[in-house]
Amino acid sequence: MIPILHLSLISIVLTLGMVFAYLAISERDLLKAIVYSAGQAAMYVIAFYLLMAPDIVLAYAAVGVGVYSAVMIIAVKKTERYEKP
């Protein structure tokens, strides 16, 4: 039997991840875009956890939410905060 709850949780989380990805791309304020990107990574972390890949969860949470966002914030700090239209 297919566990309906499990599959629907995965699909909800991945849809939210897609929405976050769209927001990160369309946002002109780059700091906000980084926060959206971190949100997308957090959604993927939950999806990986539901897909029973706990090792990926541990690495992805640290790299996707922590390290990646920090490096991007440093890049924004050294350049400009707002994307020109």
């Binding site: 090792d55 541990l58 690495a59 949470a61 640290a62 790299v63 922590g66 390290v67």
Partner: peptide
């Protein structure tokens, strides 16, 4: 995994 968590 431990190393990248440490890096935070």
């Amino acid at each position: 995994q431990g190393g990248s968590a440490f890096a935070v």
